[in-house]
Amino acid sequence: MLTLKDLKVAYGPIEVLHGISLEVPRGGIVSLIGANGAGKTTILNTISGLLIPASGTVSFEDRDITGYKPDQVIRMGIAQVPEGRKVFTNLTVYECLLMGGLVRRDKKQVQKDIETVYEMFPRLKERRRQLAGTLSGGEQEMLAFGRALVAKPRLLLLDEPSMGLAPKMITEVAQFILMVRDQGMTVLLVEQNSELALTISDYGYVLETGSIIMSDKACNLINNQEVRKAYMGL
């Protein structure tokens, strides 16, 4: 569904991705794990069009979308839940969800989808008139997810959804990702919490300082000593 081929990205003179190639098949969960600064977020932001690659291609559903602007990318059916959730703090919960449907033309259907999100997360419905910035971390996470869902994407990019959440909430997030997959969405998950990521995904890529050093079925990676070593220096 999504294919990256030899993607290179640089911030000014500094190359941070040294030729990334990966594939996300339709209907699955693929995770991208690695330490801080390995370039995980950079990959997502390049797919989303916030960054322009120096070379290489991004193709989605057999279409070359390299160099597309962010608003073109979301119109293609790719939505990202950014790192740290990034809800619009001074907008109400309802307005934040509306923002998810900004590029959709069927505004009536958007209203229905917002209702669906409310059913999924009743807490958001209770707080729909509250400013997003006043929500707790877990509620903001729900809102960020809900916003992405209102965009009706076929591919969902998740950047560190577990970051800064309490363990109980992390379990909920994992369950939620599985539920979204079951509804037919494809998920590309970026996580530092590798065990969480690998237990729910089908396939995993391990990233180190801008290069993919390993890739395998998630169940194989999870027991791989190399992976444990990369994380703990064991």
């Binding site: 992390i170 237990t199 703990m232």
Partner: peptide, 13 residues
């Protein structure tokens, strides 16, 4: 420390 780094809570495959 291991828990903090490697997992949230155990989730079955």
């Amino acid at each position: 420390v291991i828990n903090a780094y490697l997992s949230g809570e155990n989730i079955t495959c």
